[in-house]
Design a protein around this nucleic acid. Sequence first.
RNA 1: AGGCCCAUGGUGUAAUGGUAGCACUUCGGAUUUUGGUUCCGUCAGUCUAGGUUCGAAUCCUAGUGGGCCUGCCA
Length: 557
Amino acid sequence: MAEPRAKNFIYEQIDADLAAGRHSTVVTRFPPEPNGYLHIGHAKSICLNHGIAAAYNGRFHLRFDDTNPSKEETRYVESIKEDLRWLGADWGDNLFFASDYFEQLHDWAVHLIREGRAFVCDLSGDEIRAHRGTLTTPGRESPFRGRSVEENLDLFARMRAGEFGDGEKVLRARIDMAHPNLNMRDPVLYRILHAKHHRTGDGWCIYPMYDFAHGQSDAIEGITHSICTLEFEDHRPLYNWFIDNLPVPHRPRQIEFARLNLTHTVMSKRRLLQLVNEGHVDGWDDPRMPTVSGLRRRGYTPEAIREFCDRVGVAKRNNTISLSLLEFCLRQDLEGRAPRRMAVLDPLKVVITNFPEATETYAGPNHPAEPAMGEREVPLTREIYIEREDFMEDPPKKYFRLAPGREVRLRYACYITCTDVVKDAEGRAVELRATFDPESRGGSTPDNRKVKGTIHWVSATENVPLEVRLYEPLFSAENPDDVPEGGSFLDNLNPESRRTVAAYGEPALRGTRPGEPVQFERKGYFVLDADCAEDRPVFHRSVTLRDSWAKQAKAGD
RNA sequence: AGGCCCAUGGUGUAAUGGUAGCACUUCGGAUUUUGGUUCCGUCAGUCUAGGUUCGAAUCCUAGUGGGCCUGCCA
């Protein structure tokens, strides 16, 4: 038996089932409804299910839970498959649809009717609700509960034949209207829906409810462990009731775990949809969205997401994971593989007054610790841009970047000393004058003098203009729901969540391909947008580098 | 209010009746041609009260706190 990397309570239960001989193999599944896009919470479930199947050398199924034609569309099926493939969750030949089982499910409904365990009910939706009772009071039995098997069979057949309109009748299980678990109070099994289904078309006008479809679909596929989130805990007795009362070929077991929550974001489909519909973001794949497509566009890698899903753990306690863990996983993954480049995001011109007119070329390793990644050429000219924040006219003690009279190293190139500050009418520095030490070419000097600061730079004449998008969390509050009485999570939307700047990059950036991570030295990891025009590259910042100076400076004020 | 579930540092997660560990975060230090990386260190935890036991984070009871459930959604 495989030794799982992260042992959690689900593995223990599976071990126990295997040890008791209840199963000889392990089969899991990911069962999305094709009515929306996948988010990082789904990724956790995918990694869990796929990881378990892999750990036990079992099978992993992708099954679309498409029992509600009024909400589901083929385009969602495609995007979900794309997201799974990208995440690396391979379902092999095991692609299924609950709608493939409609005929079998229907036969099982007939079976229940024959056994006297299901009946056709004419009550309206409102009446069923009124009969259901409340959390503290028992429900009342439907007046149609006592119909004969023959009448139920006839009525159900006519429901299927399309003789009734939407909502006129439903098929319900006959269980217990006084059950403390409301799911057991004669739950609806089938409803009438004259809607075109994305796969079965007009083949059906009655559709099974989730409860009647899910467990039986698991049983049909031989799923051994049906892993779902906590809110289905109350459905487990019903799940088991169907398995107990139907001649199903296998006996799956439902196990619940706590869904993933992340700070500074929302995770429910409803709210994500609201963000898109109300234009708070550009779309489902907006790089600020916690969707799989948004994270992908932001520059997250499947490896980083899988590592994250591994690290968050699996338990039954409600949890909220810190966004910093997600960012940590990305940095960790990109650190070793992203080629280094230089780009200036907030340019300040520097004229190196004693620099020759001709361009000089310096070699910069693509990675400081991986010589195998090679190097690229970086042109240095008399006029360059540096980051505005890398100069201070009146620096605090521990600032070791450029200041009047101070010397810094231009990364990979040489030392410069600031000699003059050119200011505009408001006294703001608009240009610096500097001199360079010809002895320092290559980044060090024969006298071995120490230069504390190394800053990045880009030639003012040999560069690539870039559009760069800088991101902050979509919500400024850790918990977007943390609002005063009567407020909305939208009140916590971060107005600074996206900032677009015009930047300059070194020429080697021209060779970057969409989706390929790069590190802009000292500024973070970036990714070239897949849809931008070739002559106007757009880079998204995936994540910043850790910045202990920023922290120190902030603590200083 | 009825049923079900949950409770370990700031966050997340281990310890399965026998020394409370790991990771993220925080804060420090070393190294560094990225204030990055790497390395080392630091702060900090078993919800409360009873009980069982030689011994309880772990088992039992009660309390407290939190989550879910009254769709012909999934």
